[in-house]
Design a binder for these strands. Structure first.
Length: 113
DNA sequence: TGTTTGACCACGG
DNA sequence: GCCGTGGCCAAAC
């Protein structure tokens, strides 16, 4: 079993994303102080090896479902978000800024401050 | 061991 | 709005 790594934190944050909300790689990277949003992408890629990680709630800064191509089916990511009440058009989250979830909300829950 | 790739982001044109 | 470039760190070849 792998040692505790930065992507374990990414999984934790991703699982704590409220239903109907989305966040970005950069937000998670900044919150965890990873230094690079690419780490989050790598972590999410490996997330399929983990249990129940709502990777569909994590999108790039443009609100685009950049990871849909990595899902079992490209449409699955969109359907999952749609089922959660997140409208998706042209592979982008509608009202993305409004749907954006700030990871710092967990900062208080985790007692980081 | 070194190079390439990767579900990215910020900046400039 | 899109395209190109630099940076960032880690894993795969």
């Amino acid at each position: 079993m792998a040692q505790p790594t930065y992507y374990d934190l990414v999984y934790a944050v991703t699982r704590e994303i409220p239903k109907g909300r989305v966040t970005t790689y950069g937000a998670i990277a900044d919150f965890l102080a990873l230094g690079s949003a690419r780490m989050v992408g790598w972590a999410l890629n490996k997330s399929f090896s983990q249990d129940k990680v709502p990777a569909q709630r994590v999108v790039n800064r443009k609100g685009e479902l950049s990871g849909r191509n990595h899902f079992p089916t490209p449409t699955m990511m969109q359907e999952l978000l749609k089922a959660e009440g997140v409208e998706v058009q042209d592979n982008r989250v509608v009202d993305f800024e409004q749907r954006f979830w700030h990871p710092e909300a967990l900062g208080e829950a985790w007692g980081i401050f």
